[in-house]
Nucleic acid binder design. Structure first.
Lengths: 335, 335
DNA sequence: AGTCTCCTTGCAAACGATTACATCGTCAAG
DNA sequence: CTTGACGATGTAATCGTTTGCAAGGAGACT
């Protein structure tokens, strides 16, 4: 008797009402009489009934979950964002499904898969390198971009990346730096572009010269930062400060040059981007630009929920404020 | 006509067969004749049909997803584990739902919720502080513990934490250290206990004295490591080496003491635990014990899938091998 | 030719909820 | 007394698949 899990039928029987009434009691309590409501509720308690979300979803043409599609799940950058999303989705009765675009063969194929498979009521996409043409499917769910974005008019939640870069340059210039380098993200990435462009524009605005050999290619990873560090060490004429498109690259870079005896910030000033947790504990602690990750996750989820509930494929975008965090990795240049 | 998404009915009509045949073609192709199979497949292609997983799950009494229940989603430690799980679950046609126990009021309540809500076909639980009594619900899904574990006989996937601790002590002793301290995780945590016990036992085996004032309380976080570092600095008589129950604490500790002018490894040797990404890029790079996180995630997911498919609430446990990684944060003691 | 197997396929009943529509009292207004 | 409105509940169709059971047809064997 305790074997099978209780269904709405069982509750109805125990309460002496129809299943319709049970359903209404649970979803729209206002339309059922007080006395019936009590009877149903106690029957629910007695049977230990919980609504079967699969059945409910089927009937209501819902999936009951949203997907976070990140480029690389193993990247810790996303964990706080997921936490923020989860905080919003849970009360909205949506589960949080996570998936990345790098597992399997073709990222675009995976994107298309999630768009078409109908596993979710909506997607939050963190990978701007996907192809917008995949969006051309008949009953696709609403999609919102976060952090990154792509061509087309999908709503998005992001920071003003160019502004972030100019904050970094302004701070460095203020400290007296005139020779500033930059380590970029991977080619083609929108963040790479906007941060680099912001950097270049800010340099011009500060009246500082841009030296092509001081722009290093990276891919956001610590290893690529370390590689850039090694290239910096070989330079005949070095910039006295470097701005990084990601904290992780700054960490890798700093490790590499410190290894070679370079002192930060005495010999070299460093400004990162993102404010990942670890940078506050490095020696020296890193000056960086904070992207409020939890908030980004929350806002993206909120906007997505609104789109889902409105049944709309479009919605507003939002720009989240960043914060410049000054720590110990910047000092005036030596001479 | 392109408006509504195609159902199995549409495919059946186009292919001139019954829905049963379509279903069988897709799930058990071997039982349908070659010619019919072709007809169905081309009808599928023509209509753009994709099976509605909600309906399918309802009929098959499946939920179509597994939940990873972590203590704190914002902790990057889990991102690689999730990636490993995802790699296994996706081919098994299971989505990966993530949730943490710290959102909301009571962790045990949330645990119970996921156990009863029937949102998932199975759970992978990473929080050993939950109450096993919550498991006493009729018809609950299979559960497997990973990394941490709790009283009772739930299957689990984990490393031999005590062994890890003794690897650290052995290495330090080999380098000549006789005065070794330890920074623990949060009180009551199983990892804290087993790593501390392993540390104490290993010290005894090496014939080294245990000094209670050299055991610092931490909680796995960088901040708590930094706090321990500050306490270490105040010590009249300091251990020449410290073993940490987590890399994050080691990072915080090292930052704090370096800040005060202490040189690692010349003045102090450090061994961490976990091998999180960043430690390879610190100055000095940290010696640590690697927990293969991707593999832990994969094995946990694999075992869970087996339990789900067997409809069993129990299954085998597994111990994953660790690896001692020697970097630059350990040197012989000075005198 | 009759019967017995297989191999394929179709029929129709689930799966468990939601909800448009119908029904039934009850009560107030005409 | 009749009629209408309204509030509360029940009836039953529906969401899109899967699958046990039965039936049709084609050989094969006696």
């Amino acid at each position: 008797m305790d074997k099978r899990i209780a269904t709405i039928q069982d509750v109805a029987r125990v309460a002496g009402v129809s299943t319709a009434t049970v359903s209404r009691t649970l979803s729209k309590p206002s339309v059922v009489a007080q006395s019936t409501r009590d009877a149903v509720l106690s029957a629910v308690a007695e049977t230990g009934y919980r609504v079967n979300s699969t059945a409910s979803n089927l009937r209501r043409q819902r999936k009951g979950s949203a997907i976070a599609l990140v480029p690389n799940l193993a990247n810790p950058f996303f964990s706080q964002i997921l936490a923020g999303m989860s905080a919003i989705l849970t009360p909205a009765r949506l589960g949080l499904l996570v998936a990345d675009t790098q597992t399997g063969t073709d990222p675009d194929e995976r994107f298309a898969h999630f768009l078409q498979s109908g596993q979710a009521d909506g997607l939050v996409v963190f990978d701007g390198s996907l192809s917008p043409t995949a969006l051309d499917v008949p009953g696709r769910p609403p999609v919102i971009m976060a952090c990154e974005w792509m061509a087309g008019d999908l709503p998005s939640v992001r920071v003003d990346n160019a502004l972030g870069a100019s904050m970094a340059v302004a701070h460095l210039a203020e400290q007296g730096h005139r020779n500033i380098g930059h380590v970029t993200g991977p080619r083609g990435n929108v963040l790479t572009e906007t941060r680099r462009d912001g950097f270049c524009r800010a340099m011009a605005e500060q009246g500082l010269a841009l030296r092509p050999e001081w722009i290093f290619d990276g891919d956001f990873s610590m290893d690529s930062g370390a590689a850039a560090g090694r290239r910096w060490l070989k330079l005949a004429s070095r910039p006295s400060a470097v701005f990084f498109a990601s904290d992780e690259m700054a960490v890798g870079f700093m490790g590499a040059v410190q290894h070679a005896g370079v002192r930060v910030p005495d010999d070299l000033s460093i400004v990162g981007f993102d404010n990942i947790d670890v940078v506050a504990h490095l020696t020296p602690a890193l000056t960086t630009i904070r992207q409020p990750r939890t908030i980004i996750g929350m806002r993206a989820a909120e906007l997505l929920v609104e789109m889902i509930e409105a049944g709309s494929l479009t919605g507003p975008s939002e720009v989240i404020e960043m914060e410049f965090i000054s720590r110990k990795s910047v000092a005036p240049p030596k001479d």
